[in-house]
């Protein structure tokens, strides 16, 4: 695919997915009804459905996808590993431990869970960085990946322990959250995630050339005048911030960060500034679409969003693995 075609296709896909996400559901709406509801005219029920239920949900999905896409692109580039993504690196696992711990001790308020998720992610990131530094003296990618995977495994074990003695209701709540969902979206969620996505994504785009250079390897990057350890740490922390914010807003949505940068690279986009922007667009379209599928595939049951993205992501992951070996 040519890059110009990719940009139009990705933008079109987002608009299309947003329209479909707002129109489809238990109460199907026509495009003109959606238009009227958005404008504040038309039936009050439709206005309520569109403005307070479906639109914030679709926009939250958009932000989750954009943030995860950018985090994946930045991690894959700076760690020089095409399989890197926040889900595999312990960042999401740490966030999940924080959130599940909060739920398990009864702090289920909308204010507590995201804060706890952030704290968990921060601990996981710090742990991975400290362990990899102790092992190699620098934040060397292989050591960092290994440390992240180990921290993630530890996080999963911690979640099991936290849930072992919990009441069934708590377990179901935590489980739903670990499978990812934007069902509880509100404009407050959207606003918070928008702030983090804009700040973290904006900073990554600002430092995008550092990722271009880091992708060459540590010594070649150093020969071009980059402070390699500092730049790599900065990219890792910014990506982690984005991932943690999405976990706080929507739980664990895996594989978006893995799949999306590959699609964008396949379209012939390789410089990281464009790759980040393209991954934001494609990730947004993918997650809005996945959430739509989660809502409409088996009504009235809602499928977990994280499961849908994983169902798309896992086969892709396997193909990627066989191609590499």
């Amino acid at each position: 695919m040519r890059p110009a075609l990719f940009w139009s296709a990705a933008s079109l896909a987002i608009v299309l997915m947003l329209l479909l996400a707002v129109a489809f559901g238990t109460v199907p709406l026509t495009i003109s009804e959606v238009g009227h509801a958005l404008a504040g005219t038309g039936e009050p029920t439709n206005i309520a459905i569109v403005r307070t239920l479906r639109l914030p949900r679709a926009v939250l999905a958009l932000l989750v996808g954009a943030a995860l896409g950018m985090a994946g692109a930045a991690l894959q580039g700076s760690l020089r590993n095409a399989l890197a993504e926040p889900y595999l690196l312990g960042v999401s696992g740490g966030a999940a431990v924080g959130a599940v711990a909060a739920v398990a001790v009864g702090l289920t308020g909308a204010a507590f869970v995201p804060v706890a998720a952030f704290a968990g992610a921060a601990v996981a990131v710090a742990l991975a960085l400290v362990v990899s530094r102790a092992a190699t003296g620098s934040a060397e990618p292989r050591a960092l990946l290994m440390a992240g995977v180990i921290v993630g495994a530890f996080a999963n074990a911690a979640i099991m322990v936290a849930l072992a003695g919990a009441r069934p209701n708590t377990v179901r709540g935590a489980l739903w959250w670990m499978m990812g969902s934007v069902a509880d979206a509100s404009w407050t969620h959207v606003a918070w995630l928008a702030v983090y996505t804009a700040a973290g994504g904006g900073a990554l785009i600002w430092f995008a050339r550092d990722i271009d250079v880091l992708a060459l390897g540590e010594e070649p990057a150093a020969s071009l005048g980059l402070d390699v350890d500092r730049a790599a740490r900065r990219i890792y922390l910014l990506s982690s911030l984005l991932a943690a914010a999405t976990v706080a807003a929507a739980g664990l949505v895996g594989f978006v960060g893995l799949v999306v940068p590959h699609l964008v690279r396949a379209a012939g986009i390789h410089r990281h500034r464009a790759l980040l922007a393209g991954s934001a667009l494609s990730g947004a379209a993918l997650v809005i679409g996945a959430d739509l599928a989660a809502r409409v595939l088996r009504p009235p049951t809602e499928l977990p969003l994280g499961a849908i993205t994983a169902l798309i992501g896992v086969p892709f992951f396997l193909v990627q693995l066989t191609r590499r070996s």
């Binding site: 095409a82 992708a215 005048g225 690279r265 390789h270 410089r271």
Partner: peptide, 23 residues
């Protein structure tokens, strides 16, 4: 600064893998 040094001194290091294709 590292960048100022790199403007004066170019180093072709021993190993470098091409991780991601580009023109």
């Amino acid at each position: 600064s590292r960048r100022a040094l790199a403007r004066q001194l170019a180093i072709v290091t021993q190993r470098e893998e091409s991780h991601y294709a580009q023109p």
